[in-house]
């Protein structure tokens, strides 16, 4: 983890963008096409099957909206963490990162409750292709939330010691991307009925 082991290649910046941030942008680019693929497929099917409206009516908009609120707020914490990291205040940056991770945890908790309710009402992943898309797309997103939260906590541990503060921004970019995916999932799965 120490920067002494870091190769010189990592320290150069011919483009002017720090290496880590450049790499995160490429991660985001490749994630766009992953989510793009599944959402494009979903939209095609959804537009073709008017009957899915009946299914979509069973999703819980309130819970979806609360989860959107949770993720938006966690994004705010992530960017506040970044602001503190820029100012060199590792302790406060770590505090905000942990709040962000907490937001992720709340999101997952609410999601679990929501899925539990839906599954117990008989809307399982196999009951209809709408629900297959619903669970698959949101599940893929939830995996990203979980992974992001874990990385947030790891980075917060270092940041609290004022180490590797540039990573605060990197995880922030990723977290905002996950947020943006949800911003689109929310109307696609919940609002459009």
């Amino acid at each position: 983890m120490s920067s002494a082991a870091r190769p010189i290649a990592n320290l150069r910046s011919a483009t002017g963008i720090p290496t880590g941030r450049l790499a995160v942008w490429w991660v985001v680019a490749s994630e766009i096409v992953i989510f793009g693929g599944i959402l494009a497929s979903y939209i095609m099917f959804r537009l073709a099957h008017d009957a899915w409206t009946v299914q979509a009516a069973n999703t819980n908009t309130t819970i979806g909206a609360i989860n959107t609120f949770v993720l938006l707020t966690s994004s705010l914490f992530a960017v506040l963490g970044h602001a503190n990291a820029v100012d060199g205040n590792g302790k406060r940056a770590a505090f905000f990162l942990r709040l962000t991770a907490l937001g992720g945890a709340i999101f997952i908790a609410i999601k679990s409750y929501e899925w539990y309710t839906e599954i117990s009402h008989g809307f399982t992943i196999t009951s209809n292709t709408f629900w297959s898309f619903y669970y698959t797309a949101a599940g893929l997103h939830a995996l990203h939330v979980i992974a992001g939260a874990v990385i947030l906590l790891l980075i917060a541990r270092d940041a609290a010691k004022n180490l590797e503060l540039h990573r605060v921004e990197l995880i922030g970019i990723y977290w905002h991307f996950v947020d943006i995916v949800w911003i689109f999932l929310f109307p696609l799965l919940y609002i459009a009925k």
């Binding site: 942008w25 922030g172 991307f177 911003i183 609002i191 459009a192």
Partner: peptide, 24 residues
């Protein structure tokens, strides 16, 4: 309101939180 606003929200998050406005 669903998709128009989603685009606006995504734009705002990308621009201000992800700092695409100051990226090359």
């Amino acid at each position: 309101t669903a998709f128009g606003i989603a685009v606006v929200k995504a734009y705002m998050v990308a621009k201000n939180f992800m700092h695409l406005n100051i990226e090359p």
